[in-house]
């Protein structure tokens, strides 16, 4: 599946990225090029420090490359200013973190509702969206629970519901099973697979877990900032 205008969903061209720590420049990504078609489920694997998360951050628009271009669904990330990029993220990308990153003071319902605060949806529409998202992840009965009242797997499912509640084009997941036991990890991966297969979401996932990577259509490896396969 291609993006609406026939372009690939994600097009990364000659991207390099480095970080400065104190006075030292640390190269993280070196001249990476990658194409991800729409509806793809891509797993990025590699050792720690290989640049997986950095690449994911560039795709999600929370970081910008030093050189090269990242185009997601026809939009060049580098060309957007901070405000435009924030708006773009809110509608086009759903982000799933390793440590869930739910706000502890909000209930499951309120956490999922957060991205919708930036939309012009009515109260009823918001309620419908949140209920649908939480039902989809199997937590329709835990809406009023706070994160500390949920298990790790349930927290991650709330995070997934938050990622999909705005119906984004792309889901990026950074070690989504990294903090979970086997059973919870399996449930989360099944959920991501469903979102990909049944709802056509393009998913890019960083993982160390070979079992999680098995669910992906394609697995690519990064090492020392370069794609090796």
């Amino acid at each position: 599946m291609q993006a609406a205008d026939g372009q690939p969903m994600i097009q990364i061209s000659n991207v390099s990225k480095s970080y400065r720590r104190d006075r030292i420049t640390i190269p993280v990504l070196s001249n990476i090029s990658l194409t991800v078609p729409g509806g793809e489920f891509l797993a990025l694997m590699g050792p720690s420090g290989s640049g997986k998360t950095t690449l994911l951050n560039l795709i999600a628009g929370i970081d910008k490359p030093d050189s090269g271009d990242v185009v997601v669904n026809g939009t060049s990330i580098g060309s957007l200013g901070e405000s435009a990029l924030a708006r773009w993220r809110s509608t086009h990308v759903g982000f799933i973190f390793q440590f869930y990153n739910l706000l502890p003071v909000l209930t499951a319902y309120e956490n999922v509702e957060l991205p919708l605060l930036l939309t012009s949806l009515s109260k009823k529409e918001k309620r419908d969206h949140v209920t649908a998202a939480l039902t989809l992840v199997g937590l329709g009965d835990r809406m009023k629970h706070y994160p500390k009242q949920l298990s790790g797997g349930q927290e991650q499912r709330v995070a997934i519901a938050r990622a999909i509640v705005t119906d984004p084009t792309v889901l990026v997941a950074d070690e989504p099973t990294g903090d979970l036991d086997k059973i919870s990890a399996s449930e989360v991966m099944t959920l991501l697979e469903t979102l990909n297969k049944e709802y056509g979401k393009t998913i890019v996932m960083v993982t160390h877990d070979p079992r999680a990577a098995e669910k992906a259509h394609k697995v690519m490896h990064l090492d020392k900032g370069e794609l090796t396969s």
């Binding site: 999600a60 929370i62 901070e82 924030a86 708006r87 993220r89 809110s90 509608t91 982000f95 957060l114």
Partner: peptide, 16 residues
């Protein structure tokens, strides 16, 4: 700090 980063990731702007 981390929560603010999460909010920014979700699309919350500077003004938010």
């Amino acid at each position: 700090v981390r929560e603010y980063a999460v909010l920014k990731t979700l699309g919350f702007s500077t003004w938010h």
